[in-house]
Amino acid sequence: MRYVVLVLLNLPIILLAFVNILTQYKMRRVTKARFRHQIILWSIILIVLIFSFPLYNYLVGKPILDSRELSLFDIVQTTALVFMFYIINRQRQQIEQTERMVRDLHQEISIKLSENNGPR
């Protein structure tokens, strides 16, 4: 059941990645080589995800995968993810603010220059 949830959660993200790269290619914003590379990369991720259950069965019992309940490492990892999300969101807001300032500046300069050069 948990594997079905895993696939259901991740499949839309992978499909979005496929749509994204296909659109970029059709809009001629990426080269054919980059398009091919991205398709292969996301196909591998998709295949690994779909076969994650047999893969786990094969790997279970190996020391690195033994974790029955939430460990300290899981808590640290989750906290780190939340913290990273916070940082990324802050950065995004700052970038947006800077973008807006640059856009406003560009607008004002363009209008002022047109006036100075005689608009007609």
């Binding site: 856009r103 560009h106 300069i109 363009s110 209008i111 220059l113 047109s114 608009p119």
Partner: peptide, 16 residues
Amino acid sequence: VIDHILNSGAGGATAT
């Protein structure tokens, strides 16, 4: 005529 120094897209030009 207002000349944009940089190409900023239809949204940017309309905003100007």
